[in-house]
Design a protein around this nucleic acid. Structure first.
Length: 637
RNA sequence: GCCGGCAUAGCUCAACUGGUAGAGCAACUGAAUCGUAAUCAGUAGGUUGUAGGUUCGAUUCCUAUUGCCGGCACCA
């Protein structure tokens, strides 16, 4: 059996060997780490037991996931097709990304979505031709000659110090470090998804290129599953569910300024009540500071100089300008300064549900995810340098407790001291960073370090949550601030009687209540757990004239037990109201008819479950209260 | 802010290449009083986002503008 290797070499392999043996043989011949997959489309790691039809190929010398490699090769196929259809096209980057690939191209005429089908057609044609994908190492001079008509590739080549390699398939050649699948025939199950604009090299000063997104799989089944997932995600979109469930609205009169509707307000209030309770338990005191404060304050805090563009500023007749707060820190500091503090009081934890406004770029606005008016579940902790490590541990524990209630996965990113633009003592920075790193390592969550990405005033941790669209959103944050307390001349009386300046931790767990509601709406697909959902129990009288009064009695009883309940007494058929109850994803629907009138039992139907359950009324109340106390998820995920 | 797309009834959508709008759901009225995902009939509902322009005539074509969507940039 003859195999074509990624470097263009051919290798003869004995027939009838196991896939593992074949892969090993190829790997040995290349002296490289290897991953193998079969032409039947199944993926195999070299170390796994392999059932196969005898046709295997080595595909990578790097630790590259095979699916990423396929996507990368598909982006090359896309480029080849584009070159055929639009000979004047120039290429930028074309990498594999999570769940797919893209290619950035420079083309004078705009592409529209309808063109994608045609491009796909050409890609399929080229795939059928089964061009071998051949690697060649070239010198910088050779590379510059080959790509002399493409300023983007030339720019890239000039920045490469390592070995430069090119990959060719048919008459198409691209600058690429590889690796790739052996030939275009491997690429069969893909779809181009969307068009977008993207700046060359991600810099808004550069020209904007056309980005074509797509996705590629080894089997048609995998592709179809993925496309179905994309459909499913659209159904879970919080903007759609927010409308259907009556959670929030937006108005053209205030882009990015969300309105909370009755159901959304109940949900939000429940979330905030939980937040307040758990923070009080963790030693926080709660404050509330003004929504706008005078210009002078923002000058001291530095926002006037560094953040003015994003602030809403009031215009008044005299010089006394005010600004709507984009952050809560200065307010919290004023609260701290209102008293003289002893070291014995520290750490002092001021929590605040702070309603801030930021004039975000129009193009950034997105449902509840990115808004101009939002409430941060903020806290400002003033403490001594020695207390940082312990306090960070406490905060991580608190975050873990909160996130786990919502079944959310997250990872942590630690941003450390910038190279030169920073203030304070390097030793203090090192100590602070070590405290953060240690807390992360002990948290049991994966974390990565972004060297030099910290703010000039201190290192920080960001908590990145994944939404159902697999998009990453920063929710929680934990920032050390070794600057602001000094700017405001904060102090505490130390053990030795001297005045010292405390360190401050800014931190938020939800990040923004609005964004967090968006994320959990999608995460739960609108079926909120019973403790959180706007309406917990829906009571349906079979016949109003006979059963409505009993329903109202029950409503009163449930309300006395702090449950949120509604009676749907509309003159509609039971089936109609039951359907609506399910569409609104109400956890419990109770039907009251003749049978229930004389009984101490009720029959409920739980959301997502078809069979009704009959139970003693008291047991029902006990059950639902227990569920709420445990914050159980409504639907097992 | 940038690139591209979209905007029609409260909601979801339709209206061939220009001939001034139609359906389902919701709402309202009436009948039916019904036991776990849609009872039947009728009524009303629109300056087609906004402002200009081309045209005998614009939802349809053009320009501007606002908002939204997909991304990019931004998110100390």
């Amino acid at each position: 059996m003859k195999l074509i290797l990624p470097d263009g070499k051919e290798l003869l392999v004995e027939e009838g060997l196991s896939g593992k043996e074949v892969a090993k043989q190829i790997a040995t011949s290349l002296e490289k780490k290897a991953l193998a997959y079969s032409l039947d489309g199944k993926l195999y790691d070299i170390n796994s037991k392999i059932e196969h039809d005898g046709r295997f190929a080595i595909i990578t010398d790097k630790s590259v996931e095979a699916i990423d490699l396929l996507n990368h090769s598909t982006s090359h196929l896309l480029a080849q097709a584009l070159k055929n259809l639009y000979p004047e096209v120039k290429f930028g980057f074309g990498p594999a990304i999570e769940e797919g690939f893209y290619y950035d191209i420079d083309l004078d005429k705009p592409l529209v979505e309808a063109d994608l089908a045609n491009i796909e057609k050409e890609m399929h044609r080229l795939a059928k031709e089964n061009y071998p994908i051949i690697r060649k190492n070239v010198s910088k001079e050779e590379a510059l000659e080959i790509f002399k008509d493409n300023e983007y590739k030339v720019e890239l080549i000039q920045g490469i110090d390592d070995q430069i390699s090119i990959y060719s398939q048919g008459d198409f050649t691209d600058l690429c470090s590889g690796p790739h699948v052996p030939s275009t025939g491997y690429i069969n199950h893909f779809k181009l998804l969307s068009l977008a604009g993207a700046y060359w090299r991600g810099d808004s000063n550069n020209k904007m290129l056309i980005r074509i997104y797509g996705t590629s799989f080894f089997t048609e089944q995998d592709l179809q599953n993925h496309l179905q997932d994309l459909e499913e995600r659209k159904k879970r979109d919080h903007r759609k569910l927010g409308k259907e469930l009556g959670l929030f609205m937006l108005s053209d009169f205030g882009p990015g300024l969300p309105f909370f509707l009755p159901n959304g307000y109940t949900l939000r209030r429940t979330l905030e009540d939980y937040w307040l309770k758990i923070h009080k338990e963790h030693g926080y005191v709660v404050i509330d500071t003004p929504i706008m404060l005078s210009k002078q304050l923002w000058e001291i805090s530095g926002h006037w100089d560094h953040y003015k563009e994003d602030m809403f500023i009031t215009k008044v007749e005299d010089d006394n300008e005010y600004a709507i707060k984009p952050m809560n820190c200065p307010g919290a500091i004023l609260v701290y300064k209102n008293d003289l503090h002893s070291y014995k009081e520290l750490p002092l934890r001021f929590a605040e549900l702070g309603h801030v406004h930021r004039n975000e770029a129009t193009g950034a606005l997105n449902g509840l995810f990115r808004v101009r008016s939002f409430t941060q579940d903020d806290a400002h902790i003033l403490l001594t340098e020695d207390q940082i490590a312990d306090e960070v541990k406490n905060i991580l524990k608190l975050y873990d407790e909160i996130y786990s209630v919502f079944g959310l996965n997250y990872h942590i990113e630690l941003s450390t001291r910038p190279e030169d633009n920073f203030i304070g003592d390097i030793e203090v920075w090192n100590k602070a960073e070590a405290a953060l790193a240690e807390a992360c390592a002990n948290s049991g969550h994966s974390y990565k370090i972004n060297p030099g990405d910290g703010a000039f005033y201190g290192p920080k941790l960001d908590f990145k949550l994944k939404d159902s669209m697999n998009r990453i959103w920063q929710c929680g944050t934990l920032q050390l601030d070794m600057q602001l307390p000094g700017r405001f001349d904060c102090s505490y009386i130390a053990e030795d009687g001297t005045k010292k300046c405390p360190v401050m931790i800014h931190r938020a767990c939800f990040g923004s209540i609005e964004r967090f509601i968006g994320i959990i709406t999608e995460n739960f697909a609108g079926a909120f757990p019973t403790w959180l959902t706007p309406v917990q129990i829906n009571v349906l009288p079979v016949k109003n004239s006979l059963h409505e009064s009993r329903c109202n009695e029950l409503k009163k009883l449930f309300e006395q037990n702090n449950l949120r309940v509604q009676v749907d007494n509309r003159e509609e058929k039971l089936g109609y109201r039951m359907r609506e109850s399910q569409i609104k994803k109400i956890p419990y629907t109770i039907v009251i008819g003749d049978k229930e009138l004389e009984s101490t039992q009720i029959t409920y139907r739980k959301y997502g479950v078809e069979t009704p359950v009959t139970i003693e009324l008291n047991d029902f109340i006990e059950m639902i209260n227990k569920e709420i106390a445990n914050k159980d998820l409504l639907v097992k995920k």
